[in-house]
Design a protein around this nucleic acid. Structure first.
Length: 370
DNA sequence: TCTGGGGTCCTAGGACCC
DNA sequence: TCTGGGGTCCTAGGACCC
């Protein structure tokens, strides 16, 4: 019997800031872009729970967050503490959390002499899956889950939410069920009942567009979705329909992947402080990005790339990309710089940009890495 | 009050080859 | 005359995740 757990740190970035500055305790905090007095660009990465009371959450535009904070302040409520630096340290804290989780796991012995390493998969700075099958029962798995939570609080003074189920899908949905500081166990015989009333949106992979398509079929909950045949789902959602059909039933056999597969692309993009159409302003951005990319490639252990993708986002948010695949792989910074600038020029005149729309973001990405 | 940055995967048309 | 079928690569765009 498979027993899989998913751990998700609660309001991770904001909680790290809060624990490091006790005077922030209980204050609304938003970690993310610099609000620049209401003129900043970008979004909130993490809002703590008091800030969520103001309607601020992940992906809230930073200007809106600023506005909501101002509104609260005028009502005599504490203003939001905006924090836009310190992203480096979150990685360090993350590593400590992951090692705490790891220390509670057991591998499945391959044989008498060779021990298998525990199965744990880190999916982002603040999330991981791990295999608790060795516990033998959901009861025992629950005990391990609560020990891990306790250990994270004692050692790192942070809270985590854990979901446990018969596979990654159910574990993930379970960890989202009761936050913060939750522990939700969904044994196999309770999977269908647990999923039934939840919105289809809770299924990873169902975003706003898929939700809308399903709504047109009168599907809101997972129970609704289960009334559709696999054929129907395929006709509406394409290839993904079959997968969705299984997910609606809580079925998932995807493995806990211990070793992260090598990256397929490396890129960098940046929203400008102000929209621009000036070559003098824009070109240094793409040139710097091209240069940075060669550095990142080296760090990741790649020597060459073969495809270059240039991305441009206009002021009206229309986003276009141009790509170029070279006949031979190269690792040359100068070659990349040359191609990127060549690819960029058309955007500055009438060819690609007849309306002369200003540009708000530029980005460069390299693919086919070796 | 306009909407980040890092990615992955899928689709669909066209070129090209056998 | 009214036009194969399959495979692979390239390009562009879009949905989605954290």
């Amino acid at each position: 019997m498979r027993i899989i757990a998913h751990l998700d740190m609660d309001a991770f970035f904001a909680s790290v800031e809060e624990r490091e500055r006790p005077y922030l305790k209980g204050q609304p905090i938003a970690v993310g872009a610099d609000p620049q007095g209401g003129k900043g660009r970008g979004v909130v990465s993490t809002a703590n729970y008091p800030a969520r009371e103001y309607g601020i959450r992940s992906a809230t535009p930073i200007r809106k967050a600023w506005e909501l904070s101002e509104q609260a302040r005028k009502k005599g409520l504490p203003p939001v503490v905006f924090i836009s630096s310190g992203f480096r340290k979150y990685g360090d804290v993350s590593a400590k959390i992951m090692s705490i989780v790891f220390s509670h796991l057991r591998g499945v012995p391959k044989n008498l002499f060779e021990k298998e390493s525990p199965a744990m998969e880190q999916v982002s700075v603040d999330e991981c899956y791990f295999d608790l099958s060795f516990a033998g029962s959901f009861k025992k798995a629950e005990e391990i889950g609560s020990k891990i939570k306790k250990d994270v609080v004692e050692k790192e003074h942070l809270t985590a939410t854990i979901g446990i189920g018969p596979n990654k899908l159910v574990a993930k949905i379970a960890s989202d069920f009761e936050k913060p500081d939750g522990l939700t166990i969904v044994p196999p015989d309770q999977v269908l009942n647990f999923l039934q009333p939840l919105s289809v949106r809770k299924i990873p992979g169902v975003g706003p567009k898929a939700e809308e398509k399903l709504a047109r079929l009168r599907v809101r909950t997972i129970a609704d979705g289960r009334k559709l045949s696999e054929e129907k789902l395929k006709s509406v959602m394409g290839k993904w329909g079959s997968e969705l059909y299984r997910k609606l039933r809580g079925e998932d056999d995807s493995p806990v992947v211990v070793e992260a597969p090598p990256a397929k692309s490396i890129g960098e993009q940046e929203t400008l402080p102000e929209d621009s159409l000036s070559m003098k302003v824009l070109l240094p951005y793409v040139e710097r990005q091209a240069k940075n990319l060669i550095g990142y490639m080296g760090k990741e252990g790649f020597k060459t790339f073969r495809t270059i993708v240039l991305t441009v986002r206009f002021a009206d948010f229309e986003t276009v990309s141009r790509s170029r695949t070279l006949p031979e792989p190269t690792g040359s910074a100068e070659t990349l710089r040359r191609h990127v600038t060549q690819m960029f020029f058309p955007f500055l005149d009438r060819q690609e940009n007849p309306g002369k729309k200003k540009i708000r973001l530029v980005g460069v990405r390299v693919e086919k890495l070796l």
